[in-house]
């Protein structure tokens, strides 16, 4: 008893219109990137891949590109690590209430604006008035936001923001593990390490895959956090910040070419997920 096609059409149209606008945005970028739209140009001249050649020959973009990919790798590694440590720790508490309270607590950074998070950490990283006051006691006085250090510091902040999200995904995987499986292994005399290695970790693959996908996506779209902390600092410029700065200085074809690169990199992650993951994980129960 499938839905009446006319009703289907009417119900889907509003969402379809908005989604089409997003796709229109992708094709618009392709058009602009291949046509010279900069204010210096006289007309709309087809320039083919010239814009992309210029983009990749620019040191600034190459740096932003490499930095964004490095950010993704670091956020994936450190975020997964923090996430699995947090999840494994929260999982040790047997009371569901405690688990929920702890999960909620570690998720609170996600309810804050990245601008707010940026402002707080900008001050905690202040050389003389931030956390260094505490670190001084053990003889440390790092200059967190100076020069190249800023990148690593802001990466840590991003790990802080998304670790709870990763932990939540891992916990969901852990909960799917049959509790009796763990208990019977314990009664059989298996140690914690054995239980982790044999029972819990093999069941956490889904948490790992989802966590990796989303941490990578969060890093690729990084803008608000570094911008709120240090504006358009050359040491922390990401691809989206490059798009922003080219857009505001009206070099539209460069902004669009960079946008296409961001879209391509994300599509590389998103399309396999949408084609395979959604059917497998989301719609699993729907049929």
């Amino acid at each position: 008893m499938t839905i009446n096609p006319k009703v289907f059409l009417v119900l889907i149209i509003p969402v379809a219109v908005f989604a089409s606008l997003l796709y229109y945005g992708i094709f618009w970028n392709i058009y602009i990137a291949t046509h010279d739209y900069s204010p210096l140009a006289r007309g709309e001249e087809f320039i083919g891949a010239e814009g992309f050649r210029e983009l990749f020959s620019s040191v600034e973009f190459r740096e932003a590109f490499k930095r964004t990919l490095l950010w993704s790798a670091l956020l994936v590694i450190l975020g997964n690590l923090a996430g699995i440590i947090l999840a494994a720790s929260i999982f040790q508490f047997s009371s569901p209430r405690k688990r929920n309270v702890l999960t909620t607590f570690f998720l609170y950074p996600l309810s804050l604006s990245l601008v707010v998070v940026g402002i707080i950490w900008r001050w905690l990283f202040d050389q003389y008035r931030g956390v260094n006051i505490l670190l001084d006691n053990i003889g440390l006085n790092p200059s967190w936001l100076e020069g190249g250090n800023a990148f690593w510091s802001i990466v840590l902040v991003s790990v802080w923001i998304y670790a709870g999200f990763s932990a939540m995904l891992y916990l969901a995987s852990f909960y799917n593990v049959d509790r009796s499986l763990i208990e019977s292994a314990m009664v059989d005399g298996a140690g914690t390490i054995t239980i982790l290695a044999r029972v819990v970790i093999p069941n956490s693959i889904q948490g790992f895959i989802l966590s990796t996908i989303f941490l990578a996506l969060f890093a690729i779209q990084m803008f608000d956090l570094p911008y709120a902390m240090l504006y358009l600092n050359p040491f922390t410029e990401t691809m989206v910040m490059y798009i922003f700065s080219r857009f505001t200085s009206l070099y539209l074809y460069l902004a669009s070419a960079a946008a296409i690169v961001v879209i391509a990199v994300s599509a590389f992650i998103v399309i396999p997920y949408a084609l395979y993951g959604i059917r497998r994980w989301i719609l699993r129960g729907a049929r």
């Binding site: 945005g25 992708i26 669009s256 946008a259 961001v262 879209i263």
Partner: peptide, 12 residues
């Protein structure tokens, strides 16, 4: 796909 591709890239 439209949801997960960063909107930052298609805002212009």
């Amino acid at each position: 796909i439209a949801t997960y591709i960063p909107y930052h890239a298609i805002l212009v």
